[in-house]
Structure formats: structure tokens, C-alpha cells
């Protein structure tokens, strides 16, 4: 276990070392946040509720979305693809360390820094703009939401790992991950709450793991549904974790058999 902890601290140093790249990432995130924030604010000028959301809830959705973006969507997919197709993966395969655990440690370091930054940004926004922000009332929410957010994080991590593993077969490699990145944020509800969509589309989406990444977790946070609903979200996330985890493990194992350890 201590090896992964060490990878984590090393990676933390590395993230902080690359100040410019961190700053760029944050600026990009803030821009998206502000755009969505002002977009929804202006819509709420004319009406008190939109698609069943009062103003405070919708703006909280936007702010929490920004937090979850930093927590959930900072994957290592592109690095995994790069390491597979360039053959740098060999470096890990010959050492007594598990690549998945190694990646997760790296990713957690990234998430730590980004979440800290997101919390800071959101607090500023609430203070400066006087943004209305929903604070959960029920103690169940305070217990359940952190667990659900953790599950979201793991679920995205495994999903992205699964898609990135396809690089073992597609030698041009980036394709599947590119499509995934393009769609996942939209399907997860990282731009707007999914229940503004037509019912049929919603029903279809709820059959996939994506809404469990952002939409349902924020729904739980906003306490729009009863506690049973929160438990159901948690259970479904758990089921998806098992399914995606097994798929990722299988694909990875088969991929390794196919691995050409490219380069020199």
C-alpha cells in the first residue's frame, strides 16, 4: 500500500511543479462555470422556476457541477493511451506494481489539487456574486453524498480506463477516447440537469452509467428526491462499478496479450 501512497505524494509534487498547466486548467474551468452561471441567471430573470428548478437549486447545480468536474472528470485516459501506444507501459509491467493502482494514485493527486482549487473558486463566487447556494438540510444527505461522489469518481475512472484500454487494438489509439470525452460530460449532466430533456431520452439515458456520474449525485445533494432515491442511486452506482470494473479487467487482460511493447 505504501508504494501507492508514495506515488500519490510524488504526483502531488509533480502537479504543483507544473504551475502553468494547472493554471490553464483552472482558467478553462472557471470560464465554463461563469458562462453557465450567467446563462442560467439570465434565464431566471423572467421566471421563478425553469424545468422544475427554482433559481437557487439551478445555480447550486451549476456550482456543484463545477466541483464534481474537478473531482470526477480529471482522468488519466490520454496518458494511458499514450503509454500503451508508445510502449512506455513496459516500464510498469516489468515492476512489481499494479498499473491500475499506479494510475489511480496519480489521478487522486490531480483530483486533490483540482478540488481544492474548485472549492476556493466556488467560495469566491458565492461571496462575490452573492450566488444563492443550497445547503443540504437532512443528515442522511451529509452521509450519503460523499459516498455517492466517491463512487462517481471511481466509476468515471474505470469507464475511462476501459475506453483507453481499447488503444491496445486501435493502433491510432486516440479515437475511442476522443468520442468518449466528447459525449461523457453531456450524457453525465455536466452542462445542464438531465431532467430538462424529453422523457423518452431521459429514460434511455438512465439505462446507462453516465447520469450516475454527475446528474444523480447532484440530485441527491439538492435533496429533490426522498432518501430512498439516494439509496437507489448508491446501489445502482455500486452495480455499475462491478460491471464496468469487470469489463475493464477483462479488456485489460486481453489487451496485454495483444501488447506489442512498441518502440526499440
Amino acid at each position: 500500500m505504501s508504494k501507492y501512497l508514495y506515488v500519490y505524494t510524488l504526483s502531488l509534487q509533480n502537479v504543483l511543479q507544473r504551475r502553468a498547466s494547472l493554471l490553464m486548467d483552472r482558467v478553462g474551468g472557471i470560464a465554463t462555470l461563469l458562462a453557465l452561471y450567467f446563462f442560467w441567471s439570465s434565464i431566471f430573470k423572467d421566471s421563478a422556476t425553469v424545468a422544475g428548478y427554482p433559481k437557487a437549486q439551478m445555480l447550486t447545480y451549476v456550482l456543484m457541477m463545477s466541483l464534481l468536474r474537478s473531482l470526477v472528470f480529471t482522468g488519466r485516459g490520454w496518458e494511458v493511451v499514450g503509454e500503451i501506444s508508445s510502449g512506455r507501459l513496459s516500464n510498469y509491467l516489468i515492476r512489481p506494481i499494479r498499473y491500475l493502482g499506479y494510475c489511480l494514485s496519480l489521478d487522486l493527486a490531480q483530483k486533490t489539487v483540482h478540488c481544492a482549487a474548485a472549492v476556493f473558486e466556488i467560495s469566491i463566487l458565492i461571496l462575490v456574486l452573492g450566488a444563492p447556494f443550497h445547503i443540504p438540510q437532512s443528515p442522511q444527505t451529509w452521509v450519503l453524498f460523499p459516498i455517492i461522489a466517491t463512487f462517481s469518481t471511481l466509476l468515471f475512472f474505470l469507464l475511462e480506463f476501459l475506453v483507453a484500454s481499447l488503444a491496445f487494438w486501435t493502433s491510432e489509439s486516440g479515437g475511442p477516447l476522443f468520442c468518449f470525452d466528447l459525449l461523457v460530460q453531456f450524457l453525465a449532466g455536466a452542462f445542464f440537469p438531465l431532467d430538462v430533456l424529453p422523457r423518452a431520452l431521459q429514460a434511455a439515458l438512465y439505462m446507462t452509467p453516465f447520469p450516475y456520474l454527475v446528474f444523480f449525485p447532484i440530485d441527491v445533494y439538492l435533496e429533490r428526491a426522498p432518501t430512498e432515491m439516494a439509496l437507489k442511486v448508491l446501489a445502482t452506482q455500486g452495480a455499475w462499478l462491478v460491471v464496468v470494473g469487470m469489463a475493464a479487467a477483462t479488456v485489460w487482460r486481453r489487451g496485454l496479450r495483444n501488447y506489442a511493447a512498441e518502440g526499440g
Binding site: K3, Y6, V7, L10, Q13, N14, Q17, R88, G264
Partner: peptide
Amino acid sequence: FSLVMGHRTQLWWELPAQETFRLNQEIYE
């Protein structure tokens, strides 16, 4: 065992070499 490839590096590029040394201490216990 160890495999060393002349044109490959396992050292962490941005950090001092001693950090990778420590990491390998952890990895190889």
C-alpha cells in the same frame, strides 16, 4: 531482475532523480 533500455527512461522527468530512487524503494519494498 531489471531491464534497462538505453533510450528509455523510468526516471520522473520533472523531479530530481532521488525521488524516483525513493519510489523504487517503495515499489520493490
